[in-house]
């Protein structure tokens, strides 16, 4: 028998002074750190961050692939995160939720391209 329904849904938010303090401390932390970066005037190194060709190719889907994903209605979309280890590039695959802004943007762009 399924009993999941009988359980409480999840932790509920509890308001308290310590949580309020956290909220404002967080906002301050973000803005202070960004402000600090602006003042620091770090000179960015000129590194090559061009999108690697092999990934470019992979990203362009065949018609069949497009059909597949549409039928399956997957909940995530595969992305690649580019990171740098010393001077070498590394690629880590990412499962991005289909309803995230990142995924939606790419989808919209793809559809726009196809429409052209």
């Amino acid at each position: 028998a399924s009993m999941v329904a009988a359980l409480p849904q999840g932790p509920t938010h509890v308001d308290c002074p310590e949580d309020e303090d956290f909220l404002s401390a967080f906002d301050r932390m973000v803005s202070d750190n960004i402000q600090d970066r602006m003042r620091e005037t770090v000179k960015p190194q000129q590194v090559d961050i061009s999108v690697p060709l092999h990934i470019k190719g992979n990203a362009k889907k065949t018609y069949e692939q497009l059909q597949e994903t549409r039928v399956e209605e997957k909940s995530t979309m595969n992305f690649v995160l580019m990171v740098r280890k010393g001077h070498k590039q590394q690629y880590k695959s990412l499962a991005v939720p289909i309803n995230s802004e990142l995924a939606l943007n790419l989808k919209n762009r793809e559809e726009a391209e196809r429409a052209e």
Binding site: M29, R37, V42, V51, I55, A59, F79, V80
Partner: peptide, 25 residues
């Protein structure tokens, strides 16, 4: 940061490639 190597998560973000499913921090 892919470019400057800073590790402060409060200033870090990501950008996607224009046409590909690639992102970079």
């Amino acid at each position: 940061c892919y470019s400057c190597g800073v590790r402060n998560v409060f200033v870090l973000g990501f950008i996607p490639a224009k046409a590909d499913s690639v992102v970079v921090l």
